[in-house]
Nucleic acid binder design. Sequence first.
DNA 1: CTGAAAGCGCTAACAT
DNA 2: ATGTTAGCGCTTTCAG
Lengths: 346, 346
Amino acid sequence: MGEVVMGRQRPGTPTLEEVAARAGVGRGTVSRVINNAAGVKDSTRRAVQRAIAELGYVPNLAARSLAGRRADAVALAMTEQDWRLFGEPFFAETVRAVSDALTDTGMQLLLTLVRTAAERQRFVEYARGGRVDGALLMSVRADDPLPDMLAEAGLPTVLLGRRSGDECVTYVDADNVGGARAAVAHLLDGGRSRIATITGPLDMYVAQCRLRGYREALDRAGIRSRSSWEAESDFTEESGRRAMAELLERHPDIDGVFAASDTTAAGALAALRAAGRRVPGDVAVIGFDDFPLAQRTDPRLTTVRQPLEEIGRALVRLLLEEMEQPAVAWRHVILRTELVLRDSAP
Amino acid sequence: MGEVVMGRQRPGTPTLEEVAARAGVGRGTVSRVINNAAGVKDSTRRAVQRAIAELGYVPNLAARSLAGRRADAVALAMTEQDWRLFGEPFFAETVRAVSDALTDTGMQLLLTLVRTAAERQRFVEYARGGRVDGALLMSVRADDPLPDMLAEAGLPTVLLGRRSGDECVTYVDADNVGGARAAVAHLLDGGRSRIATITGPLDMYVAQCRLRGYREALDRAGIRSRSSWEAESDFTEESGRRAMAELLERHPDIDGVFAASDTTAAGALAALRAAGRRVPGDVAVIGFDDFPLAQRTDPRLTTVRQPLEEIGRALVRLLLEEMEQPAVAWRHVILRTELVLRDSAP
DNA sequence: CTGAAAGCGCTAACAT
DNA sequence: ATGTTAGCGCTTTCAG
């Protein structure tokens, strides 16, 4: 009687051994051919390739993984908060950059959602189970235990951003303090002096850094920073709008705004418009992240550009390094940010 | 001499065999315990669990996969175009729904980018190599060869949306024609008669369907549809803005707009505002997809809601069915859409 | 209820 | 340059 098979993989899939038989060679030779190893006579190689084509052979990756002790894949994990920021260009562009940086390595990039505790558990088992050779973690929150769980399990792990000033786990970050400082300094240079800021969620280190840069720039100019000039957002456009409205109410004479994200800057713009302010005539706005979002509407804003291509490359490079060597040290890379000037009349 | 090992997996990882030795049982028993199989004496089970905990044992997924002939993972592949629509709430919400629907199965969801031909090749090898038990494909273009490549390889595959009216591969879709028709009928009911539409990219079947619904509704009302009342967008906000401006120029007396997407509707809104039209006073706008994007600005728009939770569940259910049975038939599910009324004064 | 044994399909070291 | 062999760590009969 035909028993019910619980296996999911189609039967009858040709194996390396069948290819070897058909090509009239040993299994080792076939293995060399499919792995592009040197030292195979050209005629043999072609014979094997023909057999592969005729049989429609595809290597079984589980077997390769088991024998070769590697997965040829890396995960990029995103938490629930990341997911809500999904729409942000920063997010999509970074993933794209990582994907590009990975093309040469032949490794498959796997994006995974880690929203609940159950999903985190499953992901950890997946990663520790050897289905990926390493993990990239996006914009981790201060209280996120995932990096440590993976790092302690010995899985090569690299963070995009850090959880705090004394982060240990290997990470790539942008110079958030410096970028914010440069932005505010630019506003000051342009003759603005009543400068407010819309911060990101302050439980994220990145938001703390950008706020610090804002304050430092004011300090250096001899301006005492005050909390009434600071309003928190959660990096969404809507919260940026609200924060801006709030700031305007507190300080109708604002003439400059530093927004901690591109999306937030877009919200700020909308709120300023709604309040009848001209931008940048009455109020100059500088946003972190150089994306079209805040610029969909007319005024070409000056922005702080993060070098996303570089970030993607650095993430992959560090991950590869972690994979090559046993984890002897944490490696940190902080990439310079750049002010992109667009407001000719500051 | 210590040879350089190219393997990536940490050595010294405890194996099932070591657990068995420590617990003083056979390997089979350990296997039964970690798979929650029935028929293990309670005391034995606990002994094994203790050994697992003490050793910090984690099953090697490659070995399990090889022996068990399944991957316990499914892929959700996104093409380059999808990726550009990444920001759309529809996208994020659908993935979330799929993720939710998958939690009970214990399978890991893997999002993969398939942007270039090289990436497609790699993904096909990954999938055919047995690293996933099935694939979900988002909003495929008419000329996308990926569905056929996977389906022909015998991999359980389900599409979200179809490539054309005679799509074969198993899919889940929304009733786009009906939804569009209902939207336009609602505008007509509200006394509007000069109704334009902003379509999606017409090489996508979903966009064709929504346009067809628009035309059918007008036909039924005895209004001849004309192409000058139709403008194409690529589903982005910017293109929606442009399309609306164009339509306004051609027909300044427009009093209703059906937008083929939420994002497009947002663009239309902005353009209408810029042209000094009140919404919905002068012009009523209905968008497909029920999301806050088009509603960030004041007027509460009536929208066409796609049942995303249902779509996610259906995708997973069909995929599981494909996995259980050899592919004997293509299965298609078309989910009803719903008009969400918000404009009390149509 | 449990142990022993036979693979799953591949890589890599070792012969030749 | 190529064939042979010994595992990789697990699931799954099949005996007991």
